[in-house]
Nucleic acid binder design. Sequence first.
DNA 1: GTCAAGCTTGACGTTAACGTAAGGGTGACC
DNA 2: GGTCACCCTTACGTTAACGTCAAGCTTGAC
Lengths: 157, 157
Amino acid sequence: MPDLRRPERTYTIRQLCIEFKVTPRALRFYEDKGLLSPAREGLNRVYNYRDRARLTLILRGKRVGLSLADIREILELYSPDDGGAAQAAKSLRKFRDQIVALEAKREDIDHALESLREGCAGMEARLAKTRPDLLPAEAEAAQAAGARLDAVHEFAK
Amino acid sequence: MPDLRRPERTYTIRQLCIEFKVTPRALRFYEDKGLLSPAREGLNRVYNYRDRARLTLILRGKRVGLSLADIREILELYSPDDGGAAQAAKSLRKFRDQIVALEAKREDIDHALESLREGCAGMEARLAKTRPDLLPAEAEAAQAAGARLDAVHEFAK
DNA sequence: GTCAAGCTTGACGTTAACGTAAGGGTGACC
DNA sequence: GGTCACCCTTACGTTAACGTCAAGCTTGAC
């Protein structure tokens, strides 16, 4: 029984599905869209280590909000199919575009987290006054840090 | 002509649409889904400062990949409609859930950015060997930092 | 030999988040 | 008084990313 991550290992569709908690339909769909292209054994799909790596990238891309089309573009950037220096220069531009877009997303997330944390602190302060018994254990730290009740209302910017 | 951000200001649907680069249809849709509820002047919608603030939150939520349903839940957390301490405790849990989810997303973005930057560096190194003339201006820094060509292939994890 | 498990390819259904067109009201301007 | 330029509602269309059957092949277990 080989290590689940040994490079020479191969996977059935179901094995990958279980590992990554997706459905066979999804994997076939990604294949349809050109994001995966596993080998075949007769009719059956056989995924190898590279396919598995691509899948992790696909799912990560999805989690950060990229469309399958975007993800496909990125995956194509990594495959040295090439087409000459002009193509490479174009790829480089796309890489940079994606980096800029993701950095913006990171900013948004940071803002959102800040708002949420403020709202959270407000809630904790409020609960601390009325029903401290309902507070989760680690909330005292937030209180000690000086949570202000009116933070609830500062949700805009 | 009042300051565009004075709290007492109101906005027509079109004004908000232009400012935030969305369509009237989108704003009406958000209203349909319970994320906005502007006042009316006859039939016409009249948005105030609070509505505008909610809209910024809605769009930010969208950019970080939340569904309108998620965003609505969060918005409801901020409105002190209340319902007692039990309700507040529930809200607090939801706040924390969202925070945890967003932190995970941040992690994903950081991973993705790392991969992209490696790929980018690989591309730059490659171009530097073949057609340095096609390189954008600031690329030398990356070269000096020791970009390795085979980084292109380390896209998995 | 047949039965269930797991694979395959269609092909139609579904949900979210709007787009788009149809039809109609109101006020301002020339 | 016609024609913009807005605004409204209703309703059907669209795209992405699958879900959900349906029908059929293979293969090991009993």
